[in-house]
Design a protein around this nucleic acid. Structure first.
Lengths: 159, 159
DNA sequence: ATTTACAGGACCGGAGCGGTCCCCTATGCT
DNA sequence: AGCATAGGGGACCGCTCCGGTCCTGTAAAT
């Protein structure tokens, strides 16, 4: 599996919508819920969490809503995961050192840490902006993650 | 989080032990459980699963046990995850297309698929052999995942 | 003052995970 | 032949965590 939680998945969709709007423009939970076709309470919960994590800024009261604090180019997917699910750590010992009894004698721990780093770096290289303008692959720098595998872009063009 | 299941984690430790032994040598569940400091029933369960997945071969009866089917160099971490947790898919729609209602209109789905591919490729590049001989970093080819970040190897050398 | 909309947190059902146990079958040894 | 060893398959169970809902409070606009 190696799944992200569904809430996090939703969060990214919502952030994509926020990134898509005019910058500085407030968007409220109700609108976002409609746009993403998700139940309002769920959307609310996620937006609150993202605000607490510092990724969004909120405005209370009538005509209130949420805005991105930073530009979409400045927000990496890794950050989102950190904010919503805690640090990216494939193994227990990566996130909570000291819990696993066998850390001292574990033969595979260190390689895992490096795998972790590699995956984290992958996720850090992808920004919210990449997610939003996915339909314009030519804008994406060639040295980035995107475009490194020819096969993956097929489905994009056909859609 | 982005965690692998603990069972999978255990599996890798066990496979590392199996890879460490003389090749072709049977190792039984009891020994492996001792070596990994894990309860026997758990180890048993994992080994059975790995056998069903075709990664191990088993020998029943007295003096029985398990062996790796392929050389450690031929077994990638990605395969292990596939075998024990199903396909690597960060999002639901990656593993089970058609479940999510908004696939058609989803703006971020395609980028996720590419992130998926990138992570998968990362995991495919790491083999069981890499995990086992982690204490000999010089043996690892420089173009591989390992060695790309200088900081990560510090803890290795100090252990 | 009223309405809108976010803040925070309680709560709850269900799914999945980690872990144990049991019974069966196959093999080796005596 | 019989016993001990060791894997095969699956049932079972408690716990945690996740997804989702709801309620009460507070801030801002009209």
């Amino acid at each position: 599996m190696l799944r992200i939680s569904r809430l996090t998945d939703y969060a990214i969709v919502l952030l994509a919508h926020l990134a898509g709007g005019d910058s500085g423009e407030l968007q409220n939970a109700r609108e976002l819920a409609r746009a993403a076709a998700l139940p309002l309470p769920v959307v609310s919960k996620i937006l609150k969490a993202l605000t607490r994590a510092g990724l969004l800024q909120s405005q209370r009261g009538a005509r209130g809503g949420y805005v991105l604090v930073r530009a979409p180019e400045q927000v990496s997917v890794a950050e989102l995961l950190d904010a919503l699910e805690g640090p990216v750590a494939l193994t227990e010992c990566g996130a909570h050192p000291g819990v696993c009894q066998q850390e001292a004698s574990c033969r595979v721990r260190d390689p895992w840490q490096r795998i972790n780093r590699a995956i984290r770096e992958t996720l850090e290289r992808v920004t919210l902006a990449d997610l939003v303008r996915a339909s314009e692959p030519s804008l994406i720098p060639p040295d980035s993650l995107f475009g490194q595998s020819a096969g993956a872009s097929r489905s994009l063009e056909s859609s």
